[in-house]
Design a protein around this nucleic acid. Sequence first.
DNA 1: CGAAGTCCTTACCGGGGAGTAGGTTGGGGA
DNA 2: TCCCCAACCTACTCCCCGGTAAGGACTTCG
Lengths: 224, 224
Amino acid sequence: MHAEEPPRAARAKRLPRAVRERQILDAAVAVFARHGFHTASMDEISEVAGISKPMLYAYLGSKEDLYVACLRREGERLMAAIEAGADPAAPPDVQLWRGLRAFFGFVAEHADGWRVLHQPASAAGGQFAGELAALRGRMIGLVGRLLVRAVSNGNVAAGIGAATRRDTDGLAAALVGAGESMADWWLAHPDEPVGVVASRLMNLAWMGFGDLVEGRMWVPPHKR
Amino acid sequence: MHAEEPPRAARAKRLPRAVRERQILDAAVAVFARHGFHTASMDEISEVAGISKPMLYAYLGSKEDLYVACLRREGERLMAAIEAGADPAAPPDVQLWRGLRAFFGFVAEHADGWRVLHQPASAAGGQFAGELAALRGRMIGLVGRLLVRAVSNGNVAAGIGAATRRDTDGLAAALVGAGESMADWWLAHPDEPVGVVASRLMNLAWMGFGDLVEGRMWVPPHKR
DNA sequence: CGAAGTCCTTACCGGGGAGTAGGTTGGGGA
DNA sequence: TCCCCAACCTACTCCCCGGTAAGGACTTCG
């Protein structure tokens, strides 16, 4: 039944340890990004890496060790990307600008790494991912319509006038994410009263968007 | 070995179906919140619910069905809480204010529900939860220090002067969450160039915080 | 009292996947 | 040329956990 065994020379043979470890980590990141930790199988990782299973254990240890290794490598890469553009001498707004550029740059270049870092979710086969996405979509839609209404009551900021719908959708997603994140933070600081937390986010969100409505924008220094 | 079998009357016996279903869902939400979907076992859920395993399957179907039921119930509760305070006649800022209050109110009263909805993560036994939390902490620290520096360069907003450190930490968490969320949104709209996404979040974040630095605040109408 | 139906349990099955035992190949040194 | 060791694979074992079969007890109605 193993009639047409492929020449097998296709799989580069007997590589030095460091190279193999890189290959394995790359494969693991890809698989973990697609399936999440639990649904990912060591068999699939070994297959993607073009290697047999015992090699994984010989080089990277248990499945948990391997996952931690992925988290560490991608995490370090992310932090390195952000800190690379850091310039403590620059004014705060420029620093923030550069940090955001670096962050989104990382996401663009290492989408799988970002997925591994951010969504240990996606665990099951996209089944209740649908449920969650639907709920999230409803909330984003709610906020988005609110923003659209607010925009139509004020002056549309010049820079975002062209693709308003896109902008409001993206901003709505950001607001929802900010709310979720602050909620997590709140769980770690339970002594804060509701009003303080809510008004803090309110100040962040509304004052920012209020400025956009009135046509004030932050622009990168020197045309970039 | 089953020497001192407890009277077992402690477990309320022979309850009507509706009550049992509520008990089961409550237990499932608690367990899923603590362990995530995959690491949670039906045995543990049945134990927490004070019931035997086949009852779960008789009443709620498979493990996935049960999980979906939890998502739906908690999701509906969340949406209901938010929509309850909605008043389309109110001005946008008041609407947003009420929505935030309702949202955080839900999180406060149904922390487990929120966890189930938001972090299908936490999958493994808090092991690499630590890894992720550490990375997130570094990023929040980075942003937090940036905000502290920015505040000390401007006028401290009157309302947040007392607990500046807390405020900046919370705002930093919110900004990080907004960034993560917008990153996810971006993955669903890959045609957007980096600069557009980054500057959109920049406008949201900085203009909002810029106002705070200059002492301008949004205040709830009529002292609430 | 007996029949009927519902609630509930113990005790098991089967599959999938983490982890391993042991043999095989190929290259570098004597 | 021959040996030896490191890289590598095939082919298992074993456990955990989702799911179920088959039967027991309490309650209610004729």
